[in-house]
Design a protein around this nucleic acid. Structure first.
Length: 199
DNA sequence: ATATCGATGCCCT
DNA sequence: GGGCATCGATATG
């Protein structure tokens, strides 16, 4: 047998953001071996008023206009980092990674986050980046190469959907996706009945 | 349980 | 100057 390549390849990302956002639910993300199962994502389309790319290219969002399968890492509210997967057939599409169920490297996550509770390590886009050590240094980096590793899920999970968090434009679009039954969401999915994380 | 607020950078008008 | 793809601390029911 050929040596198995664990990570997804570039073609994984060459699909529309809503497809990729759903495919990533149940997949695993590691950064230098620290990570877990992706349980919450949001899709942002190129013609989406809520997308950072909507008003054109700037220094901050340049990576969104780069190759599919690379990272778009931006600073949020001046102090947090957020990690996106650049995807789609058009330029300017991305999927925001909002929450993981931590599996590997918990001591490193706890050290970086300054908290011990596993539910508070990666339950939110800013928390996830802090726990995995993702910063602007990885903006534009390819996701199919170290330090990144994304492993596709083995079986199709139950996926729930809802409104995106913290957006005011196109707020009605149900482009937030979650792993059914997870207790590691950044916020509950209303109406689909799953619990919120602590505090 | 929800509400409000401050921190802080960058892009918009 | 205002508005964010946020978080944690504080206040209050």
């Amino acid at each position: 047998m050929k040596s198995a390549r664990y990570g997804v390849n570039r073609s994984f990302f060459a699909r529309p953001p809503r497809v990729v956002a759903r495919e990533l639910i149940g997949a695993s993300l590691f950064v230098a071996g620290v990570g877990g199962v992706i349980v919450e994502t949001e899709a942002y389309a190129h013609d989406d008023p809520a997308s950072h790319s909507f008003s054109g290219r700037t220094a901050r969002n340049a990576a969104m206009f780069g190759e599919t399968g690379t990272a778009y890492v931006y600073r949020s509210y001046g102090l947090h980092w957020c990690l996106n997967v650049v995807c789609g057939a058009e330029r300017g599409c991305a999927v925001l990674l909002r929450a993981l169920e931590p599996l590997a490297g918990l001591p490193a996550m706890q050290e970086r986050r300054g908290v011990a509770n596993p539910r508070l390590l990666c339950s939110g886009p800013g928390r996830l980046c802090q726990a995995l050590g993702v910063t602007g240094a990885l903006d534009g980096a390819p996701l199919d190469q170290p330090p990144f590793l994304i492993v596709a899920r083995a079986t199709a999970p139950k996926i729930i959907a809802g409104r995106r968090i913290g957006v005011s434009r196109a707020a009605e679009k149900p482009w937030r996706f979650g792993l059914g039954g997870s207790s590691f969401f950044s916020k509950p999915f209303k109406g689909t009945g799953r619990a919120a994380p602590l505090s």
